[in-house]
Nucleic acid binder design. Sequence first.
DNA 1: TATTGTTATACTCTATAACTATA
DNA 2: TATAGTTATAGAGTATAACAATA
Lengths: 158, 158
Amino acid sequence: MSITAPTDAEADLLGRTGFRLVELGKVALTLADAALAEYGLTGRHLRVLTLAAGGVPSQQGMSERSGIDRTTLVAMLDDLERHGYVRRRRDPADRRRHLVELTDAGAAVLGTAAEVLDRVEDDLLGPLPAAERRRLGRTVAKILDDRGAGGELPVVEC
Amino acid sequence: MSITAPTDAEADLLGRTGFRLVELGKVALTLADAALAEYGLTGRHLRVLTLAAGGVPSQQGMSERSGIDRTTLVAMLDDLERHGYVRRRRDPADRRRHLVELTDAGAAVLGTAAEVLDRVEDDLLGPLPAAERRRLGRTVAKILDDRGAGGELPVVEC
DNA sequence: TATTGTTATACTCTATAACTATA
DNA sequence: TATAGTTATAGAGTATAACAATA
């Protein structure tokens, strides 16, 4: 038994590395979403935007690669298109498909978002000594790589 | 500018420590929820259960301490009560209030849950060298403590 | 017949407002 | 009048099923 008495149950839970990792993930996402909001983006939108930039053309392909449901993608691409970040065109070679193309504004906002995320990460991890911060990055990458098939795609979703 | 070309945007995002921390948090929660499911619990239920065990008696108090909305708490306590883990009693001193008491079954499941979470954490972090695993725990705790007011309560919610 | 994108629908989670009973 | 718990309702976010166009 890992806890000594019921009254210590709260401290036991809150003190767990696993619990703290969940907390930290939420904080990281909350900070990122808040910082990206002024550009009409969330972390999830940004993920989709990088897919459009990375040369995954069809919506089906983007869905398979990211794990985001293809019906969910429709609304997200609507958002991105409304902000002028992407453009949908019928694929002349297969008129069922949409080619999702990054606009100039989309490319620009990707650069901006990278800077925004740099600042968010500095805010979150800046207080750490540089060596500890690098070590954290390596450790976290290692844990995820151990689990993921190829380590390239997200383990859960998005 | 942090990215060299639009086509590298995906690798840039996925390779960020911030992004990986979000991923890792999701993985940790997914594993915990899956392992706890057989006891009718989620991580969030477990958080509420530890509050009942920790001597926070009224639902209002539990809400304030955990950041979980008091209306959300109602349904969660219904779940816990249905599983026989807690019992609600009118406070004789203030008949508006409910005293939320841990049952024997609730105390038992808390012990079991602690073991379950130990296993989940071993599954997730076991592949790391012991020293690196300890260091990760300390680093993550430090980051959260730097942000939280007292460091005792969750920074975001639950 | 299968695939792509879309829409309609439903389900989960959470939050807001309103209600009751007590103080 | 204020507070504790509850219920009703609505809003995100996401998933499932059905549909139209195309292969």
